[in-house]
Amino acid sequence: MKNMEEQGVSSGQVFQNLSIQPEQLPAIATVEWRPLSGAYLQALVLRMWLFRLSVLAAFAVAALLSPAIPLTLILWVSAGWLILALATMAYLKYRHRAMGYAVREHDLLYRSGLLYRRTVAIPFNRMQHSEVLQGVIDRQFGLARLAVFTAGGSSSDLVIPGLEAEQAYRMREFLGEKVADE
Rank of each mutant, 00 (worst) to 15 (best):
N3C: 05
E5K: 13
E6N: 09
Q7R: 14
G12W: 06
G12P: 00
Q13F: 04
V14K: 15
F15L: 14
Q16L: 12
N17C: 08
L18W: 02
I20P: 00
I20K: 13
P22A: 13
P22W: 05
P26T: 04
P26D: 01
I28H: 02
A29E: 12
T30V: 05
T30G: 01
V31Q: 02
P35I: 09
L36E: 03
G38T: 12
G38R: 13
A39C: 04
Y40C: 08
L41T: 13
V45Y: 10
L46W: 12
L46E: 08
L46Y: 11
L53W: 10
S54D: 01
S54N: 07
V55L: 14
L56A: 15
A57T: 15
A57N: 06
A58L: 15
F59Q: 09
F59M: 14
A60R: 06
A63G: 15
L64A: 12
S66I: 12
S66K: 10
S66Q: 09
P67I: 08
P70S: 10
P70V: 12
I74Q: 13
S78H: 08
A79P: 03
W81P: 06
W81S: 12
L82Q: 09
I83D: 00
L84F: 15
L84N: 11
L84K: 11
L86G: 13
A87H: 04
L92N: 12
Y94S: 13
R95Y: 04
R97L: 13
M99Y: 07
G100W: 05
Y101Q: 00
Y101H: 08
V103N: 07
V103Y: 03
R104L: 13
H106P: 06
H106C: 03
D107E: 11
L108D: 01
Y110V: 11
R111S: 03
S112P: 02
S112M: 04
S112G: 07
G113L: 06
L114I: 12
L114V: 09
L115F: 11
T119L: 12
V120F: 01
I122Y: 00
I122S: 02
I122V: 14
P123M: 05
F124T: 13
N125D: 08
N125I: 11
N125M: 06
R126V: 14
E131C: 04
E131M: 07
V132S: 00
L133I: 15
L133V: 15
G135R: 03
V136P: 07
R139Q: 08
R139L: 01
F141C: 02
L143F: 04
L143S: 02
R145D: 10
L146Q: 01
V148G: 01
V148S: 01
F149P: 07
F149Y: 14
T150W: 04
T150H: 03
A151T: 09
G153E: 06
S156C: 06
D157E: 04
D157F: 05
L158Y: 01
L163K: 02
E164V: 10
E164W: 01
A165G: 03
A165I: 05
A165D: 00
E166Y: 02
E166S: 09
A168C: 03
Y169Q: 12
M171T: 10
R172I: 05
E173T: 15
G176V: 05
D181C: 11
